[in-house]
Structures are given as C-alpha cells and as structure tokens.
Amino acid sequence: MIGKYVFLAMGLAIVAGCGLQPSRDRSASPTVSFAETYAAAEAALAKAAASRNVWSKTEGLLQQSKIANDEGRKEDAIQLANEARMQAELALTQAISQEKDWQENVLF
C-alpha cells in the first residue's frame, strides 16, 4: 500500500518536474477545439462570478483568447482560455474554502 503511494508520488514528482519545462500545456493536442476550451472557461468563470469572487485578470484573458482565435492564433487562444479557466476554478476554490477558513484570519 505504502509502496503504491511512493510509486505514485514519484510518478507525480516526475510529472511536476516536467512541469518545470516551458511547455506544460495540456491543450497542445490539436484535437482540442477552441470552442470547447473557451466554453469550459466561460462556465468556470460563471461559477466564480456566482461565488462573488472573480479575479481581476480572468476576464481579460478570455477576451485575449477570443482575439487570438479571431486572428488565427489557435494555440495561443486555447492556452489563454485554459489559463482563464484555471484562474476561475482557483477563485471558486478560494471562495468555497474561505467560507469556512475566514475565521483563521480572526486573530482576536
């Protein structure tokens, strides 16, 4: 059991290590469509907005993504949309965890 975790951890570490290389873009595959990626980002952003916690750069990333796509820079467009999606997901995670964790910040 423990051996399994170590093995998994090592695997993850290698993945993380590879992440240090410039390209950690999991959308590089040409089969991923811009439309899908963009829609996923929009959906994540809507959830973050519903949690009343949108980060200030996320909408701009989505706009840039759209522009990139219009200009035919598909890889850029997908990368920007993915970044926007990840930001929106992190913002939602932050909002949800702070619903409970805000009390950690109350020092007295």
């Binding site: 951890a9 993850l12 570490a13």
Partner: peptide, 8 residues
C-alpha cells in the same frame, strides 16, 4: 501524498 511529492 503532496508532502511526498514535495520531498521527492
């Protein structure tokens, strides 16, 4: 797991 990941 994340600690292990960090260590390794």
């Amino acid at each position: 797991l994340s600690l292990l990941v960090l260590l390794t």
